[in-house]
Design a protein around this nucleic acid. Sequence first.
DNA 1: CATGATTTAATTGTATGCAACGTAATGCGA
DNA 2: TCGCATTACGTTGCATACAATTAAATCATG
Lengths: 179, 179
Amino acid sequence: MTRKRKTDGEKETISRSAASAEDSSAQSSKYDCLKLSHQLCFPLYAVSKEIIRRYKPLLEALDLTYTQYIAMMVMWEARELNVKELGRCLYLDSGTLTPVLKKLEHKGYITRRRSKVDERNLIVAVTEKGMELREQALSVPAEMSCALPLTHEETMTLYKILHKMLDTMEGDGQGGGQA
Amino acid sequence: MTRKRKTDGEKETISRSAASAEDSSAQSSKYDCLKLSHQLCFPLYAVSKEIIRRYKPLLEALDLTYTQYIAMMVMWEARELNVKELGRCLYLDSGTLTPVLKKLEHKGYITRRRSKVDERNLIVAVTEKGMELREQALSVPAEMSCALPLTHEETMTLYKILHKMLDTMEGDGQGGGQA
DNA sequence: CATGATTTAATTGTATGCAACGTAATGCGA
DNA sequence: TCGCATTACGTTGCATACAATTAAATCATG
């Protein structure tokens, strides 16, 4: 809907970029590496947001946001774990998780309690109501994959590359790859 | 390790389900599609965030956040355009851009003024100082690609797939792909 | 056993994202 | 030309993200 194509007459704002030679047209310059179209992170960031946007209407039916949804996915599998472990699964820290978990608790999908063994740990556990939500969520993955324009092979390739990146970048150290 | 737990009450609520097999171990269940490890969006979202995290120390030297950086990338190329066009380039709306642009203006990298032709348009233009920043940013792309663990071929493949997704999902319609 | 170092959450402050709404400026048809 | 539909931004409200700091509980050591 939004995002039309090249609206008509906005000549003024397009700017013929002044500057004599500089970068403008079709020739390469030392600034090419700074073009948005040459970046790898940007499309990653943009696609991620676009897909999450597609999730929204589906997740609305479950009264979940995307972050709450991936948190529940972990909970459905693990049934019970602490904030640190959940954060490791989701690549999120307590600063982000604490408010998310409080909301999920308020909705009745999880419970939060301190471990008696080590009171530093806050144990998150999925509730019966939370497990029932899983049933309603069953149709989500299929609906989402239908919204993606990839062939099965492309999906596999993408999946593989992304996980390689996650595995390598894990922790924080240097990647070490090349261009 | 927290884990285990073997919720018994589940058999009652989940009438159908896999009789007794439950899901835990190594066998498949109808819930597999809801596993975080089977998702495509999640690693996309996680990798995107991780890479942006890697950008931070580099961009700090330029006094830019990642969002401000990609906005400047467009500005360096276009020199001048309105908020709508910038938003189309970055997949961001005015709600996000307005505060970002005000910050960039405050730093002196851009100017904001209304178009005299159509006062609804706010024209964003890069300043001299903004163009000087481009020089300092020249080393960022190379440093970032070094932090990625991908081969050149993987990079190209990833780039291609991501852009295919962006192109197809553009606007909003249905992707139409398959699994 | 006393204490400083660690670990785990929660809190605080800053910066996005985005839907929904508000407002001013334009475009357009009767 | 009048008035309504559109368009382009800005604002508001809500939900993340994350660095840095704080607070409480444990651990490690002398």
